[in-house]
Amino acid sequence: MQSYKVLIVDDEYWVKIMLQEVLINSGFTVFTASDHVEAVEVVKNDQPDIVILDVNLLDIDGISLLSRLKSIKSDIKAVFISGSSDAGCIEMAKAHGALGFFIKPFDILEFATFLIEISTSGMTSRGEGKWEMNGGTVQ
């Protein structure tokens, strides 16, 4: 089976590299982007299956970027990561069809396991994802 393709969009260099390392070790094909221009390029050229989006990017918010990426590849799945546990933001992510929302700093092994579940179960609809709120995890 062809390896599952993941795009990581985060403007923090070491966060990006660290996540890349973990996901490559978990068997994914990983692409990275620091801003919306790079992200759009990767989605056009490499057609990733899932995108990991930081909510607060320098030039755009992650949720607007997801809408943009979906206009290029409508079936792209999304998981948000953020330093803030703003409830409004989590709701917004859900409304945009994201599969999960992880609050930094989170357990990267748990994160990798969650992505493996998505890639093998074909999880598509919202509601079955993983949602973190106020430090706890809401399944």
Binding site: E12, V15, M18, E21, V22, G83, P105, D107, I108
Partner: peptide
């Protein structure tokens, strides 16, 4: 500060 904490934590897990 959460970003560096996260990358440090992640690399430590690796």
């Amino acid at each position: 500060i959460k970003n560096p904490i996260f990358s440090i934590r992640g690399f430590l897990q690796i």
